[in-house]
Each structure stands twice: as structure tokens, then as C-alpha cells.
């Protein structure tokens, strides 16, 4: 099983797709239950606020590889148990405000014990999308840049 990422030219969204050996309800639990979320997010990930219902607010924080604190906040627009999560997501910790993205998480049953997860992240422009994918604007800061750091070292 591997993760597929699509970011087409001329578009302002990213598609992330992955299969899991689990039922839809189990994948849904992992995506929405706070004690499970902290297990698959990075080690510095902390939930500050979490109200997983239509119109509910959430906020999280994490430490970037540069030692600074970053985070995300947003609102759950729609939660359909075992089917779909639609939320906004604003990246926090930069010296200026950034426009939030819209994220749609969909679950599709392959069979009773196999589920396909599709995450569509919609940005307000192609440039913002590219900045996010290529510069690791969202939680990617840590690992992308630690990898880049070692890549840079290998060039030296």
C-alpha cells in the first residue's frame, strides 16, 4: 500500500489517496478520536481544542524542526460518520496571516475490511498550493526540512 499524491498544473488542489486494511468505521475513528489522532501525528503534536461536530472548532500545535511552535486551527463544516469530514484548516505560527485551506476527507469501502481514504486539500490559488506542497507549509515543516537539511549537507 502506498500513498498517491496528485497536484496538477493549473489547479489549486492536492489529492492524497491511501488504502487501509480496515473497515470504514475504524478508519473514521482513527481520523476523529483525539487519543488516536495524537498517536499518528508527530511526537510534539498537541490538541488545544477539539469539538468534532458540525460547526465545531479545533486547534492544535506542534514544534517545527527550527524549534518554533506552529499549529493549525479551523472549523468542522460537516461530519458524516464513517463517510466524510469537511473542515477548514489555517496554518499558524508564521509572522503573517495565511488564508485557510478547505479539506475534504472521504472514505470509500473497497470491501468489509478494506477502505480507501481520499483527502482533497483546496487552496485559494495555485501558487499557495505549490507553496504548500513544495515548501511543506502544513505540518510538513519538520520532516521535509530535516530531509532537505541532510540533502543540503550531502551537496556540500
Amino acid at each position: 500500500m502506498s500513498t498517491e499524491i496528485t497536484a496538477e498544473n493549473g489547479k489549486q488542489d492536492i489529492w492524497i489517496q491511501r488504502h487501509f486494511e480496515a473497515s470504514k468505521s475504524l478508519v473514521f475513528r482513527i481520523l476523529t478520536e483525539p487519543d488516536l489522532i495524537v498517536q499518528w501525528q508527530g511526537h510534539s503534536f498537541a490538541i488545544k481544542s477539539y469539538d468534532c461536530k458540525n460547526g465545531g472548532f479545533y486547534e492544535s500545535s506542534h514544534i517545527g524542526s527550527d524549534g518554533n511552535t506552529y499549529g493549525f486551527k479551523g472549523v468542522f463544516h460537516e461530519i458524516i460518520p464513517d463517510e466524510r469530514i469537511i473542515k477548514t484548516s489555517e496554518f499558524l505560527g508564521l509572522p503573517f496571516k495565511v488564508i485557510p485551506t478547505l479539506e475534504i476527507h472521504s472514505l470509500e469501502e473497497i470491501n468489509t475490511d478494506q477502505t480507501k481514504l481520499t483527502i482533497q486539500i483546496i487552496c485559494n490559488s495555485e501558487e499557495v498550493r505549490d507553496a504548500m506542497v513544495q515548501h511543506g507549509m502544513q505540518q510538513q515543516f519538520d520532516s521535509i526540512f530535516s530531509k532537505l537539511d541532510s540533502l543540503i549537507k550531502s551537496f556540500k
Partner: peptide, 14 residues
């Protein structure tokens, strides 16, 4: 790297 990061998260979910 963006893909690998998600893959790492998904493996934890596995």
C-alpha cells in the same frame, strides 16, 4: 518528501 510524510503518518495509522 510531502508524499513520504503522509505515508509515514499512514503507516502509524496501520
Amino acid at each position: 518528501p510531502f508524499r513520504e510524510l503522509w505515508e509515514a503518518k499512514f503507516q502509524k495509522m496501520d
